[in-house]
Write a protein that binds this DNA or RNA. Structure first.
Length: 911
RNA sequence: GCCCGAGUGGCGGAAUGGUAGACGCGAUGGACUCAAAAUCCAUUGUCCCUUAAAGACGUGCCGGUUCGAGUCCGGCCUCGGGCACCA
């Protein structure tokens, strides 16, 4: 009886769906485990074989945890707002919701074929009003909160208001507040709200007609679409993520994430400890204090000039009248440049002198103040003290404009380049002379603080997140403008639904598409016209899965306290500085206000690698329609042409299929080698234009979902990127057939009730031990190898005993659930194998009774000796020393010591 | 430039400091077959050699620690990823 994967897979997929086999409820009697995949954006192209890699891994883990007795939450949904659907809408007039719904249906059918154990009753879609109600709700909470630095957490803004009313806060006095207009009060509170509106320099992308967050821009181009991005001052909604910088950094240590992703987040947060220092400045006869930030307070004696960012407000105030024209010209030129241009012109040093001077607070020296692009307005104070001897950027600037360079470290050579390293002994530095740099930094900080010149300060690179997008297909802001004052919609009005509009383009006067909506008002006042960015909907979706149909709360108390946080999160590294920061921020905010009980959303994170494409090539002889096999192509002048990988198997071209592929190849001729046409290949990104996209549906058709699952895992470690290469898929397919043949021969079912031998039990228990250990370590490829060995051994022993095979089916079920389900039922079970228990591992049954020790002399392998497993290292040594008499082993030399590595090896050191 | 990660057969990849190359693919030979497919068996790192035995050499390069290093340490090289005027 043959393994008929088609019948088996469709049968059990239907059974699982009909019985809602993976439906899960809160069940305090069982321990919980929450396994989550990063939900996909349903693109029009559908899934290729790379997408399910992480899903398969997490599904194996989820199924394993169920067998281990956990109540497993394993949901799936769609990140459904986004650019491609909107751009398609702009081109075709098709409502993005229509496209999105179609794409979701396609994704769903593709996912279903692979046999995932999702609880589909918990599906969420970010574009569903019932879902985005809670995105809007969270925004309102952020609008209605401020970050209290004393409590070090977010608090309701009403607490700040009462504090201002009674005692004032920072520069706001109770009197000021009492007499302030509504507009003025709103402006004051905007400075503190977690979700606030403010003018900043934003990444404006003309090509997309919207602003973008920092993580949506790479190399000066938009990540989506690759359009140029420029800096523009605009008033936008923002999230005060920077208030959480320290907490986001500190709790990274407690997370079970890969070092590389934690490091990426640390770099993105960019904590830097330094000093803020006040320099007095003179512009004509006006004096003005200017604050700078430095991490090298020890180098103040080497300051020879100061630099302001072109965008800094200080520039206008510090420009002398006779320099004004030139400075303004420079500032304008800098503003005109796109981010892209600034990057491409890296290291070309530009700048202009302001005509004013700063006074070094430590030695009273007068130093010129310049403006240059290399100083950023958004970091620190937008002004720096320049120490050319010990900072490479200051050095380049000083060289270009002929400014003095004063070395501060004994023996350093600054004739060719600056000395940036923080080691050596200080000189030319007054009271710091003779100190080591590290001590001097601290001494200088102490001095500066003691003399009221400045204070210690920690700066972060992490910026607040720009939260407005000038687009249609996103969550509308629950905000309206009453007399021009941003006012939150009452919670009872949520969700605020996206209005229907006639065209998805920006309005003729350059406003976002929502400006086209009829009657986009609340209570007679205009509603906010921008929408939220892509990361809004994905920031708390993991919480919604816990309680997806709750109309009263994002997540109910009971569900939250049971499921708490995600135990295992699987997804790609591309979200390291976007989604994974925003989600952590969002979660910490909700935690501060008591809406969730865990401070961190994702306990353990596994980043699956990318599956690249493996493109195939044919070689056409120039000017002909004749194609030459790869090995012979050097004998002709040829052009390399991508050929659809689905026409190629094991690098051999199906020439008939090739002729039918395209009309122009219908009469193609071939020059073969050994009767075959061999294709060339290269690893490239999987994409339509390279004809290297492999659809999982095709693999399911020809090999089955179980083979696909096994093969994707067998390809190598989950975390590693690798090209998809169908070569080798026969191996795992063969394994499944062999497994099947333990149960069936050509006449049918052959499983017997006989008692298992010690040998057979050893094979079984070795596998149980190995699988348990490997799955916990997320090492699935080695488990599959162990499985292959076990099946080969059982096959060789002709073992068809139920006592052995039944646990084998359970062991197989996380990997090849369809086959396991079929066999499980044939073994007489009524229930799904989902409810089986993971077989108990008995190490004694897996153990060998004797061990073959390799014996080495001075590390050189000489012979082996077989000793009982139970022998202690001392007994092993005694046994070996007992053999010492056999002199030829030691060549007349004496044994110095015998090293016994238990269970492993014996090494005899001779001299 | 800075910060991570990785370099192992023809290929994908295994190896708590302990017989490197598990497992799979591919290849070669064989069995079964009229034949093919499927299946099964054997061989498969390199060199030396007619073959075998036995040996020598082998985990990017150079050095070190150790009885013993793919693994640990120091210095390079190459590739991949992230950040990039962050003072």
């Amino acid at each position: 009886m043959d393994y008929d994967f088609k019948a088996i897979e469709s049968k059990w997929q239907a059974y699982w769906a009909a019985n809602k086999e993976f439906k899960v409820e809160t069940d305090p009697s069982k321990p919980k485990f929450y396994v989550l995949d990063m939900f996909p954006y349903p693109s029009g192209a559908g899934l290729h074989v790379g997408h399910p890699l992480g899903y398969i891994a997490s599904d194996i883990f989820a199924r394993y945890k169920r067998l281990k007795g956990f109540n497993v939450l394993h949901p799936m949904g769609y990140d459904a707002f986004g650019l491609p659907a909107e751009q398609y809408a702009i081109q075709t007039g098709q409502h993005p919701e229509v496209t999105t719904t179609q794409n979701i249906a396609r994704y769903r059918s593709q996912l279903d074929r692979i046999g995932f154990s999702y609880d589909w009753d918990r599906e969420v879609r970010t574009c569903d009003p019932a879902f985005y109600k809670w995105t809007q709700w969270a925004f309102l909470k952020m609008f209605d909160s401020w970050y209290d630095p004393d409590a070090d957490k977010a608090r309701p803004i009403s607490e700040l208001v009462s504090r201002i009313e009674s005692e004032g806060y920072e520069d706001v006095t109770p009197e000021m507040w009492a007499s302030a207009s509504e507009k003025r009060k709103s402006d004051i509170l905007m400075r503190y709200r977690i979700a606030y509106q403010g003018e900043t320099s934003v990444n404006w992308c003309e090509g997309l007609g919207t602003v973008l967050a920092n993580d949506e821009v790479k190399d000066g181009l938009s990540v989506r679409g690759g359009y140029p991005v420029e800096q523009k001052k605009m008033t936008q909604w923002q999230l005060r993520v920077s208030a959480y910088a320290e907490r986001l950094l500190a709790s990274l240590d407690s997370l079970d994430w890969s070092d590389s992703i934690k490091e990426m987040q640390r770099n993105w947060i960019g904590r830097s400890e330094g000093t803020e220092m006040v320099f007095d400045t003179v512009c004509g006869d006006r004096h003005m204090p200017v604050t700078i930030f430095t991490t090298r307070a020890d180098t103040v004696f080497g300051v020879t000039f100061m630099v302001l960012a072109p965008e800094s407000e200080l520039v206008a105030q510090l420009t002398a009248d006779d320099r004004r024209a030139e400075v303004e010209e420079y500032v304008k030129a800098a503003a005109r440049k796109t981010e892209r241009e600034r990057i491409s012109e890296t290291r070309t040093v530009t700048g202009v002198f302001t005509g004013s001077y700063g006074i070094n607070p430590l030695n009273g020296k007068k130093i010129p103040i310049w403006v240059s692009e290399y100083v950023l307005a958004g970091y620190g104070t937008g002004a720096i003290m320049a120490v050319p001897a010990h900072d490479s950027r200051d050095y380049a600037f000083a060289r270009k404009f002929g400014l003095p360079i004063i070395p501060l470290i004994e023996g350093c050579d600054v004739s060719e380049q600056s000395f940036d390293a923080k080691d050596g002994i200080m000189c030319n530095s007054g009271f710091l002379d003779g100190m080591a740099v590290k001590d001097a930094i601290e001494a200088a900080k102490d001095y500066v603080e003691a003399h009221g010149i400045g204070r210690r300060k920690v700066n972060y690179r992490l910026r607040d997140a720009i939260f407005s997008r000038q687009r249609y297909w996103g969550e509308p802001f629950p905000i309206y403008y009453k007399d021009g004052v941003p006012t939150p919609l009452p919670e009872s009005e949520l969700p605020l639904r996206l209005p229907e509009i006639s065209s998805y383009k920006p309005s003729p006067d350059g406003e976002p598409p929502l400006a086209r909506a009829k009657d986009w008002t609340y209570d007679g006042w205009p509603l906010e016209k921008s929408t939220m960015p892509g990361f809004a909907g994905s920031s708390a979706y993991y919480l919604r899965y816990m309680d997806p149909r709750n109309d009263e709360a994002l997540v109910g108390r009971e569900a939250d306290e049971y499921w708490r946080s995600v135990d295992l999160y699987v997804g790609g590294t591309e979200h390291a500085t976007g989604h994974l920061i925003y989600s952590r921020f969002w979660n910490k905010f909700l935690y501060d206000l008591g809406y969730v009980c865990e401070d961190e959303p994702f306990r353990k994170l596994v980043n699956q690698g990318m599956i690249q494409g493996r493109s195939s090539f044919v070689y056409r002889i120039v000017g002909t329609n004749t194609f030459v096999s790869c090995g012979l192509k050097d004998k002709y002048e040829t052009t390399e042409i991508h050929v659809d990988v689905n026409l190629v198997r094991n690098d051999r071209l199906d020439t008939e299929a090739f002729r039918k592929w395209r009309p122009e190849y219908a009469d193609a001729e071939f020059v073969l080698e050994n009767g075959e046409y061999v294709c060339g290949w290269a690893v490239e990104k999987m994409s339509k234009s390279m004809y290297n996209v492999v659809n999982p549906d095709d693999i399911c058709d020809s090999y089955g979902a179980d083979t696909l699952r096994l093969y994707e895992m067998f390809l190598g470690p989950v975390e590693q990127s690798k090209p998809w290469d169908t070569k080798g898929i026969d191996g795992v397919n063969r394994f499944l057939k062999k497994f099947w043949r333990l149960f069936f021969d050509k006449d049918g079912w052959i499983v017997t009730d006989g008692k298992a031998t010690a040998q057979e039990l050893k094979v079984l228990h070795k596998l149980i031990g190995k699988e348990q250990e490997d799955i916990e370590n997320f090492s699935f490829n080695t488990t599959i190898s162990a499985f292959m060995i076990a099946v080969n051994e059982l096959g060789a022993m002709k073992c068809s005993k139920k006592e052995v095979l039944e646990p084998m089916v359970v062991l197989l079920s996380p990997f090849a659930p369809h086959m396991a389900e079929e066999l499980w039922h044939r073994l007489g079970h009524e229930d799904s194998v989902t409810y089986a228990s993971f077989p108990e591992y008995v190490p004694a049954l897996a153990a060998d009774d004797s061990v073959t020790y390799p014996v080495q002399f001075n590390g050189k392998m000489r012979f082996t000796v077989e000793l009982p497993k139970s022998a202690s290292p001392q007994e092993v040594e005694a046994a070996v020393r007992g053999m010492e008499q056999t002199a030829r082993w030691t060549d007349g030399r004496n044994i110095v010591k015998v090293i016994v590595v238990p269970g492993r090896i014996i090494n005899i050191v001779v001299k």
